[in-house]
Simulated assay, not measured.
Amino acid sequence: MPERQVTEVEGRRLVLSHLDKVLWPATGWTKGEALYYYAQIAPAMLPHLRGRAASFLRFPAGIGEEGFFAKNPPPGLPDWVRTVTAPSHEGPKQRVAVDDLPTLMTVANGYALELHVPQWTAESGPDAHDRLVVDLDPGPGADLTHCCLVALLIREALAADGLVCRPKTSGSKGLHLYAALRPTPAREVSDYARALAERLAREYPALVVSRMTKALRRGKVFVDWSQNATAKTTAAPYTLRATSVPGVSAPVSWSEVEQCTDPAELTFSPEQVLDRFAEQGDLLAELLSDDQALPDPAD
Rank of each mutant, 00 (worst) to 15 (best):
E33C: 06
A39M: 13
G51Y: 11
A39R: 15
A128V: 00
H48W: 07
V134L: 15
S170D: 09
V15G: 02
S172G: 11
S255C: 03
C165E: 04
D291M: 04
S190K: 13
P270E: 01
A53G: 07
F268G: 09
P183R: 08
G139L: 12
E8S: 08
K220T: 04
F222Y: 15
K93R: 14
P263S: 04
A97W: 01
V134W: 01
L181S: 08
W225T: 00
L132Y: 09
A54T: 06
V248M: 13
A285I: 01
Q227T: 11
D296S: 14
V134I: 15
Y37D: 12
V208L: 02
T7V: 15
R187W: 00
W80C: 10
P185V: 00
P205G: 06
K214F: 08
G162W: 02
W120C: 10
E279Q: 15
G139T: 09
R131F: 13
L207N: 04
V22L: 09
V164T: 14
V96N: 05
A160E: 14
Q94W: 03
S253I: 02
W120V: 04
Q40L: 15
S170I: 06
G32P: 15
K232W: 00
C165N: 09
A61T: 03
M212D: 07
D127P: 02
K220N: 05
T121P: 00
V189T: 10
G28E: 03
G11V: 01
E3D: 14
V164E: 12
L163I: 04
L101C: 07
D20T: 13
T27K: 02
F56N: 03
G162K: 07
L132S: 09
P87M: 11
V223Y: 07
L240K: 05
R4L: 05
P237H: 10
V84W: 05
G62P: 03
L240R: 08
G28I: 09
E203N: 01
R166D: 09
H89W: 11
G141Q: 10
A112D: 14
L196K: 00
H146M: 04
L152C: 05
A195W: 02
A44P: 01
A112S: 14
R58F: 03
L288M: 03
D143P: 02
L152K: 11
A293V: 00
L136K: 07
R194C: 15
E3N: 11
G11A: 05
V96D: 03
Y37C: 13
D262P: 01
V189R: 02
A186W: 01
P263Q: 06
T233M: 08
Y36K: 10
F69C: 06
E188V: 07
G139D: 09
R4S: 03
V208Q: 02
D127V: 00
I63M: 06
K232S: 12
P140Q: 09
N109V: 08
Y37V: 11
L274N: 03
A206R: 14
Q5L: 15
P43G: 13
L163K: 01
P270R: 02
H116V: 03
E114Y: 07
P167W: 06
M45C: 12
T103Y: 14
Q272R: 12
F68T: 10
D290C: 05
P246A: 00
M105S: 10
